[in-house]
């Protein structure tokens, strides 16, 4: 099970964080600091896994962003990387060639997409189309709502 997902820019700024296990705000912040310094300092030529406390950090860099997933010790590391990749592909499809700015300004959308893919720390939707379908359905319904309100 994934413990938390973090998106960190190369400068060490948090772009998105989501914990799937209960964790106090203060500890989250401490963890982010620790994890980001660990990962930003790793050379690009080494493997994408890192043992951290009793967990494993699986991370991958996409352009200027590091996507980090913290998984349990017995989990499949390579699959965790693929989960991250799947998330990135979904973001890419939704935003159309996603870039860091999209995530900065629309991070609530990124959270919605993440909520469709990962629920309570497990990947629940491996079909990109289904994810996008759910999201666009929600978008449409909210737009209708807005329009209805404007008319009324």
């Amino acid at each position: 099970m994934i413990q938390f997902i973090l998106l960190i820019s190369r400068q060490g700024k948090t772009r998105l964080k989501k914990w799937f296990v209960p964790c106090a705000e203060r500890d989250q912040f401490r963890t982010i600091k620790e994890v980001s310094s660990l990962i930003l300092n790793r050379s690009p030529k080494v493997c994408n896994f890192l043992e951290w406390r009793d967990y494993k950090l699986c991370y991958k860099r996409y352009a200027s962003l590091f996507f980090i997933a913290c998984v349990e010790n017995t989990d499949n590391e390579l699959l965790a990387l693929e989960t991250v990749h799947h998330f990135v592909e979904c973001l890419d499809r939704y935003f159309g060639n996603v870039c860091e700015l999209d995530l900065i300004f629309n991070f609530h959308k990124a959270y919605y997409i993440l909520d469709e893919i990962l629920i309570s720390g497990e990947l629940q939707e491996s079909s990109k189309r289904a994810v996008l379908h759910h999201i666009s359905e929600q978008d449409a319904m909210m737009q209708e709502n807005e329009q209805a309100k404007r008319k009324g």
Partner: peptide
């Protein structure tokens, strides 16, 4: 009542609160 607001409400609750 507004669905739009409700969803944001749930999203932010998910991010802000924890189960206890």
């Amino acid at each position: 009542k507004n669905l739009f607001a409700k969803r944001i409400g749930y999203l932010t609750c998910n991010l802000f609160l924890h189960r206890d």
